[in-house]
C-alpha cells in the first residue's frame, strides 16, 4: 500500500525500537523517543512491537492512504483520530493532524509497518548521520511511502487501551532518577529545583534551564558510556538529559539517569514545560520496569485472543 504525504508536519521521521548492539562502534541506539507509545500503536494494529512507525513532532502531517488499512495513533494529544485505539480506514481516506495540544511526539502505526530498508539492523531514521528510515531524512510533502502488506486480516475492533497502563504523561512531570557516577560531586539539594525545557532540545537531548548545578571538583573526566536518560552537567551547570539519539560515550559529569519507565515522559516534554526529579532505588526502578513489561505482555496476549 502507498501513503501519500500531503503535509509533512514539523519533523516527521520513520522510527522503530532502535538498533542496540552497535554501541561499541559508536552507533546510537536511536528509535522512537517514546518507545512505549510506538510499541502500543504497533500492537493495536496487529504488528510486531518493533515495526517501523511514524514519529511526528509538535505539528502533525497530513496523509492519504491508498488502500483499506488499520491505523493507531499514540503518544502526544494530536487531534485527528481518537488515540490509543485502532481505526479501520477506507482506501482514499485522508488524515491530518494540526498542532499538538499536549505532549511533543505522536506515533502512527499502520498495519504491516512502513517498508523502509534495514540499515545497521534498524529501520529508524538517524538524522545526524543521514541514514536509516525514509532516505535518512524527515518526510517532505509529496513523498510516497510504502507499507508492507500485513500478514493477517485487517481488524479494528472496538477496544481501547486501559489508561492505567499508560505512563503518567504531564506537562510538568516528576522524572524519577537513579544517582549517576558523579552524583557525589553535586549538592543533593538539586532534586529540590525545578527546570524549564529549553527550545534547543531535540532527539539527542532535552536541554534544561534552572539554577546552575555547581560541581564541587573540576577534574576532567574520560569519555565513558552514556545512554538515553543520562542527565549530564556541562560546565555551565545547565543539565542535559540525553534522548534516543544520544551519542554512545561522553565526558561530562553524570549526575543521574532517568529510569526507563519514565523515558516516555521525557520524550513528551516541550519547550517551556517544567520538570522536577526525584530519586528512587535501583530495586524500585527494576520493579517498575518488569511491571511495565508484564502489562505489555498482557496487552499483547489480550489482543492476540481478540484476533483469533
Amino acid at each position: 500500500m502507498e501513503i501519500k504525504v500531503l503535509r509533512c508536519g514539523m519533523l516527521s521521521t520513520i522510527q522503530d525500537l532502535g538498533r542496540p548492539g552497535l554501541r561499541a562502534a559508536g552507533v546510537p541506539v536511536g528509535g522512537a523517543m517514546d518507545a512505549f507509545a510506538l510499541r502500543v500503536a504497533n500492537l493495536l494494529v496487529g504488528n510486531d512491537e518493533d515495526a517501523a512507525g511514524l514519529e511526528m513532532t509538535r505539528v502533525g502531517a497530513e496523509l492519504e492512504f491508498g488502500e483499506d488499512t488499520v491505523v493507531a495513533v499514540t503518544g502526544a494529544t494530536a487531534g485527528g483520530p481518537e488515540p490509543w485505539r485502532p481505526h479501520f480506514l477506507k482506501a482514499g481516506t485522508r488524515i491530518g493532524w494540526g498542532q499538538f495540544t499536549a505532549g511533543c511526539r505522536a506515533y502512527l502505526a499502520v498495519a504491516g509497518g512502513f517498508d523502509v530498508p534495514v540499515v545497521l539492523d534498524g529501520r529508524g531514521t538517524y538524522l545526524r548521520a543521514g541514514w536509516g528510515g525514509w532516505h535518512g531524512r524527515p518526510l517532505r510533502r509529496g513523498d510516497v511511502l510504502t507499507v508492507t502488506p500485513p500478514d493477517r486480516t485487517l481488524t479494528a475492533g472496538n477496544w481501547h487501551i486501559d489508561p492505567r497502563i499508560l505512563p503518567a504523561y504531564a506537562t510538568n512531570p516528576i522524572l524519577r532518577v537513579l544517582a549517576g557516577a558523579q552524583a557525589g560531586e553535586f549538592s543533593p539539594q538539586w532534586t529540590q529545583s525545578e527546570f524549564e525545557v529549553h527550545p534547543h532540545s531535540d532527539r539527542m537531548g532535552v536541554r534544561l534551564q534552572g539554577a546552575p548545578l555547581a560541581r564541587a571538583v573540576t577534574t576532567e573526566l574520560d569519555s565513558t558510556a552514556v545512554a538515553p536518560g543520562t542527565l549530564q552537567v556541562p560546565p555551565d551547570g545547565q543539565p542535559i538529559v540525553l534522548g534516543a539519539d544520544a551519542q554512545t560515550i561522553g565526558g561530562y559529569p553524570q549526575l543521574a539517569h532517568v529510569i526507563s519507565v519514565d523515558l516516555p515522559l521525557l520524550a513528551q516534554l516541550r519547550p517551556a514545560d517544567r520538570v522536577r526529579f526525584s530519586e528512587v532505588t535501583l530495586a524500585e526502578a527494576h520493579r517498575l520496569y518488569r511491571a511495565r513489561e508484564h502489562a505489555l505482555a498482557l496487552l499483547r496476549e489480550g489482543l492476540a485472543q481478540k484476533r483469533r
Partner: peptide, 19 residues
Amino acid sequence: VEVVPAFGTVTLYYDPVKV
C-alpha cells in the same frame, strides 16, 4: 544486551526482565 568499553571502563547493558 551489549558491552561498551571506553578508556578504563566497561559498560554492560542488560535487560532487567532477564535478570
